[in-house]
């Protein structure tokens, strides 16, 4: 009997990508995905359930489907996408409900994988060059997204203590670049002049989006418990990132950077939230060796992730979005999955 997996955030980028990857895995017997919005990728066998953002129906779904693995991708790390309040609701309340359902008496859940972020470490003046998993940030969080992730990780730690029979894998991803994902940083790198902060050239790290999915598959297949930093090897200065992209920098003033950024947002040029400005000032490095010791091999270094992003954005510039948009039609999806008229090979 294979794994029965529940994915949160199926309609968002990572949930969709993870579901696509898991559908190919013969060890995964059943996938059910939750979201407030419909999936944006074409899925073959994943069952989509519409849920409100705090997942109040989750306990019922877990009981009904008897899932043994939960992949929690629905944590919003990009504060440019929504208000701080909504982000907090999604991250903190969503995770609380998720863990309550997973830890309910008689729950079938045996493995929880959470897609967290290296934002938990922040980016501060007094940071060490490399953060290991057991280290804490050096200054208190200033932004809502950082506070919410720290809260989420706290709940998860309590859950792991209270439920020793459940494997808990907490993955902290560094900034992701790749062929398809859009983040505040990728938008910055696609501008004609890339914002930077005058007099600062911080060292940054990236994970390629394929490596993100491969990490999730890796910890799921091997049921590896613990906290792991996920980031490509090496760090590179922001100036070099911009050079690899074939761009030039537009330096913002080092004093009053927040105000300048607010002006840029006001004229709809780009939204650079405080956590991104911190990164552009101080940079961040996380030690990725614990995951490597567990046996994971990266396909991309930090610079490799930048290059992968550049190639994809060159292609986009020439031919537009090469991936066709997909629109979810409930009736069609239900027909293919459940109609007796459809011949299903695996049965």
């Amino acid at each position: 009997m294979g794994k029965r997996v529940l994915i949160t955030g199926l309609g968002a980028f990572w949930g969709g990508r993870a579901a696509l990857a898991l559908e190919k895995d013969p060890d995964v017997e059943m996938i059910v995905g939750l979201d407030t919005i419909e999936p944006k990728v074409e899925l073959e066998r994943t069952e989509y359930v519409r849920a409100d953002q705090s997942y109040s129906i989750l306990a019922r779904i877990v009981e009904a489907t008897q899932v043994d693995t939960i992949l929690h991708t629905f944590l919003e790390m990009d504060s440019t996408r929504m208000s701080g309040r909504k982000l907090h609701e999604i991250n903190v309340i969503g995770t609380m409900n998720l863990l309550a359902a997973a830890g309910a008496p008689g729950s079938s859940v045996r493995h929880i994988i959470v897609k967290s972020s290296t934002l938990v470490y922040g980016a501060n003046q007094s940071d060490p060059a490399w953060f290991r998993e057991e280290m804490t940030r050096t200054a208190p969080p200033r932004t809502r997204v950082e506070r919410s992730i720290i809260e989420v990780e706290g709940y998860l730690r309590d859950f792991a203590d209270d439920n020793p029979h459940v494997v808990v894998s907490l993955l902290r991803f560094s900034n992701v670049l790749g062929t398809d994902i859009t983040t505040a940083l990728s938008r910055a790198l696609e501008m004609p002049l890339v914002p930077s902060i005058l007099g600062f050239d911080p060292q940054v790290q990236f994970t390629e989006e394929d490596d993100v999915i491969r990490t999730i598959e890796f910890v799921m297949a091997n049921r590896i418990p613990g906290i792991f930093n996920v980031a490509g090897d090496g760090k590179l200065p922001w100036s070099e990132v911009v050079s690899i992209c074939g761009k030039r920098r537009l330096p913002l003033t080092p004093v009053g950077t927040g105000t300048v950024a607010a002006l840029l947002d006001l004229v709809r040029a780009i939204d650079l939230p405080p956590e991104v400005l911190d990164l552009l000032r101080y940079g961040r490095g996380v030690d990725n060796r614990r995951l490597k010791r567990a046996g994971f091999q990266y396909h991309y270094t930090s610079a490799g992730a930048v290059e992968s992003f550049v190639r994809a954005s060159r292609l986009r510039k020439t031919v537009g979005n090469s991936r066709p948009e997909y629109h979810y039609e409930r009736d069609v999806e239900n027909f293919f999955r459940h109609s007796p008229a459809v011949v299903r090979e695996h049965e």
Binding site: A129, W130, N222, R223, L236, P237, G295, H299, T301, G304
Partner: peptide, 25 residues
Amino acid sequence: LVPLPRVTNEAEPVDPRIGDVDEWG
């Protein structure tokens, strides 16, 4: 049992760096 991670001998990923700034800056 927890299955052991597969041992593969994949090549090191290519690192398309263009500068010589090391991890310490």
